[in-house]
Amino acid sequence: MKQSISYKFTIVLLIIGFMVAVQYNSMKQPEIRDTRDIWAIRQELAEEKKLHSELLSEIRELDRTLSTYQSMNEQNTGKALSETVDKLRQRAGITDRTGPGIVIDVKPSPESIAYGIPITSIAPDLLTRFVNEVNRFKGIDMEIDGKRYSILSSIREINGWTTVNGLNVSTPPFKIKIVSSTISESEKLYNYLLASSIHDDFYLDNLILDISKPVKDVVIHGMAEKYENLYLEELPKGE
């Protein structure tokens, strides 16, 4: 009888000891903490605020467009709609654009030329990183090796060649043209690119960026591809 009681008491003590050990271990392990410094957190916060500001600007622009349509008669509404279509065509990169901007020459580095290192097509991920750097600035239009880059564009590797909109990008040297809304914005972009670490990324691929100073008139061409309306139809008048 005593052995049975002692056996049960031992089992209870083992269970209690196990539970205490688990509780102690869970209290001992620290919570996962954010180990980033204050500047990294401030940088992320600044990016989120910038995105929030851009979204608010787009909402205000859409509200103004809607208000314009509602306040106009039928004839003026058609004119406003036509102007909106023109803006969308420009944003999609279908139309030509001339304005203040910079021209960038993507060239082989002097060392690669001196040592006879062969230069192949620019890597698609490198070109994408450059585009992402430039897209920090809003209201710009870009042309890469004569190919218009817009919100509809894509950078891919096809059969070993880097392409923009499905068209091969030439083996360096080639030019990248960027047009901004004002000469002041072009100067900001120019200074930003001069100090950007993107130069190191290009240099690792035996390439350099030769960035010209901002000029008043840079011409970039619209996309060669034409977009057709496949689904919308104009209703007869009176319907």
Rank of each mutant, 00 (worst) to 15 (best):
G99I: 04
A40P: 00
E58S: 12
S6R: 11
S212T: 12
R60S: 07
S6A: 11
T163Q: 09
S212F: 02
I15W: 05
R91E: 13
R33D: 07
K87L: 06
P173L: 01
L152Q: 12
P30V: 11
K28Y: 05
N165S: 05
K87Y: 04
E228A: 13
S71A: 07
Y231R: 06
P108A: 04
I155L: 07
D125E: 05
S109D: 05
A80K: 07
A40S: 13
P100M: 03
E233I: 12
E185W: 02
T95R: 03
G139R: 01
V22I: 11
V20T: 06
K147I: 15
M142V: 13
K87F: 06
Y192A: 11
Y24F: 13
V12S: 07
N206S: 15
Q29V: 07
K79G: 02
N229F: 14
D96H: 10
R33H: 00
L55G: 01
K49A: 14
G166L: 00
P30F: 03
K50L: 15
N229D: 15
R148N: 10
E83G: 01
L88P: 02
G166H: 04
D125W: 08
K188T: 14
E143L: 01
K188Q: 15
P30S: 11
N165C: 08
L62S: 11
S181A: 12
K8G: 06
A114M: 06
K107G: 03
D37G: 07
E157K: 11
P108Q: 03
L207I: 14
H52L: 13
M1C: 01
V22N: 10
K147V: 11
T98F: 03
L207G: 11
P100D: 01
D200P: 06
D96Q: 05
R136D: 10
N165G: 10
L194T: 00
V85F: 10
D105C: 05
K49S: 13
K87S: 13
Q3H: 06
T68I: 01
D86A: 12
S180W: 01
E47S: 14
E31D: 14
G139K: 03
I41L: 15
G99D: 02
W161M: 15
I41T: 14
K87A: 12
G93V: 10
L209H: 03
S67V: 00
G93D: 06
S82Y: 00
S180M: 10
Y69L: 12
R64D: 11
D217Y: 06
A224N: 05
L167S: 09
E74M: 12
V134P: 06
S197Y: 08
L167W: 00
K107C: 03
L45P: 00
S6L: 07
L62M: 09
K175R: 09
L55E: 02
I102C: 05
R129I: 04
L62T: 08
A21Y: 08
A224V: 14
N191E: 15
M223K: 12
W161C: 09
A92M: 09
T84V: 05
N76G: 04
Q43I: 14
L13N: 02
S153M: 04
E228R: 14
T162L: 08
D201T: 14
F202V: 04
D125K: 06
V164K: 07
D125M: 04
P214L: 05
D200W: 06
A21R: 04
L204M: 10
D210L: 11
F137P: 00
R156D: 15
L204E: 15
P110R: 02
N132Y: 04
F202M: 09
R97D: 03
F130V: 01
N135K: 12
N165D: 09
V218E: 09
